[in-house]
């Protein structure tokens, strides 16, 4: 048995793909719209709770649009607070996040845990399409891969439409947007609704994947997603949009792989939050550290050459 078995890699990729939806959501709000949306944790749990309740009711497919719709509502509230009532974006996110805790409990029927064992999920439905062993093992990953590829293409297309361009411009230059007769408040609202719908979808999928929903599921999610996003943006180097979107997904998968490796190295689960934090720091610091190393190498080389020239000159003078 190798260090990383196929099963471990598969699980890491599956979870990585689901988490990448949250990373894409932050990509929309944080990178594109330049708004710090901290309601991610609560919104993720909301998606999971709504998804779980609808799935238990026997509609695993219907759970997806409903969870996304719940995300849209949450994003709308966050956006309204900051655009209409002048609440600072970070504060607006925290307020919504706090309020969502109660709402999530209410959705789950005021219990902190909901189990969806024994009912169909989209994964079990897709898995039952073929009885073969291969399909049994890989169907979930294939399904997620298809969903993510489609979503990335949709996001790419969306960002090049008139609405998408306006949203990008809002994050890039508010003055220009106002001068172009676009209402920035509407664009921020549209952007946050969209981004939170992705978070809701991620929550729904993770609920059906784990067949459970816990009220504390989302805690720390924003850090994880930010880590994935930063890793992705470091890889893509902020170049072309298509590349950036796919690299966010790649970043999320990479992050899960790192976590899997940490698991294999017997890092205790209690230390995981610290591991996440360190990964975020390393990912953010990496480009800067690389620059610093390059600079010092160049400086050392220059000093060395200069010293040689000076010494050579002195020798010439002695002769």
């Amino acid at each position: 048995m190798g260090f990383l078995t196929a099963g471990i890699v598969r699980t890491a990729l599956e979870v990585g793909l689901i988490y990448s939806l949250v990373a894409l959501s932050l990509f929309m709000s944080f990178s594109i719209l330049n708004v710090c949306d901290l309601s991610t944790d609560g919104c993720y749990t909301l998606g999971c709770a709504v998804g779980a309740v609808v799935t238990i009711a026997g509609h695993p497919l219907l759970a997806i649009p409903l969870a996304m719709g719940a995300g849209v509502c949450s994003g709308f509230v966050t956006a309204t607070l900051q655009t209409r009532f002048g609440v600072q974006s970070i504060l607006a996110g925290i307020i919504v996040n706090t309020g969502l805790y109660t709402i999530n409990l209410a959705v789950m029927g005021f219990s902190s845990n909901v189990s969806i064992f024994g009912t169909d999920t989209i994964f079990s439905m897709f898995g039952s399409l073929s009885p073969s062993d291969f399909w049994h093992d890989w169907s979930s990953l294939i399904l997620l891969f298809v969903i993510l590829t489609l979503l990335c293409l949709i996001i790419r297309w969306f960002l090049s439409t008139r609405l998408g361009l306006s949203i990008r411009a809002t994050g890039d230059s508010m003055a220009m947007v106002r001068a172009s007769s676009i209402n920035p408040a509407v664009m921020i609202t549209a952007g946050l609704c969209l981004s939170n719908s992705l978070t809701g979808l991620a929550g729904c999928l993770i609920g059906q994947y784990n067949k459970t929903c816990d009220i504390n599921l989302g805690t720390g999610m924003v850090t994880v997603a930010l880590a994935s996003l930063v890793i992705g943006e470091t890889i893509s180097g902020r170049r072309r949009m298509t590349l950036r979107i796919f690299c966010v997904v790649l970043g999320s998968c990479l992050y899960r792989m790192i976590i899997s490796i940490a698991l294999r190295l017997n890092v205790p689960t209690e230390a995981f939050k610290l591991v996440s934090a360190v990964i975020v720091c390393v990912a953010i610091a990496a480009p800067e550290a690389r620059k610093m190393v390059g600079f010092h190498a160049r400086k050392a080389a220059a000093v060395y050459t200069r010293r040689k020239v000076v010494r050579g000159g002195e020798k010439d003078a002695e002769n």
């Binding site: 361009l165 990008r168 001068a179 676009i182």
Partner: peptide
């Protein structure tokens, strides 16, 4: 102030043309 630095010339013009 009047342009979005992270977007291409074409995208800037497209937004202005809205």
């Amino acid at each position: 102030m009047g342009t979005a630095p992270g977007m291409t010339i074409e995208e800037n013009l497209a937004v202005a043309y809205l």
